[in-house]
Amino acid sequence: MNIFRFAGDMTHLISVLVLLLKIYATKSCSGISLKTQELYALVFLARYLDLFTDFISVYNTVMKIVFIMSSLSIVWCMRMHPMVRRSYDKELDTFRHYFLIAGCLLGALLVHEKFTFQEIFWAFSLYLEAVAILPQLVLLQRSGNVDNLTGQYVFFLGAYRALYILNWIYRYFTEKHFGRWISCISGLVQTALYGDFFYYYFISWKNNAKLQLPA
């Protein structure tokens, strides 16, 4: 474990807590893409299949359970909670995310570390995580104004993967056999997708203005 990875995990956790806070405190999910949340729930379920078979550390197991439970509870809230579901921007959140799932599944069948059930789902979860933010970014562009908590949620979500890239660079230079190319490449793609969001987020922060994404 290195500081970059720990900081990345904490930033990821903060992003999930910010989202839960927003939904719980405001009883609203306006500006949040249900499709991105469903994709994230799928990412965690597909990646943590080894939750009961490989014990790595208490920290690892606890964080896996937290991510699975939080992502499922956000999806449940947005679908079932009577107050929250009313504020869901159904007509704006129209990204066809099933194509993302199909594409990533096909990609995992073609490019993986080993042709085993667990490894294919692991590669699938990495590819899916790289593109899972797309419905959310499209929704933000469509809804134009971004409320603070949603902006912070997306910002922390992007920052976590950027910290992981530093972690992979660190591990590449400190561990002789570290060759996780699937993680690195999908992580780079994922962080790149946040590129324009980070740019507008920084501009709005610098001008102390409200975050406006060009439609």
Partner: peptide, 10 residues
């Protein structure tokens, strides 16, 4: 057979 390297990252 080398033990399967469990993915230790989240």
């Amino acid at each position: 057979e080398q033990p399967r390297d469990p993915h230790d990252e989240l």
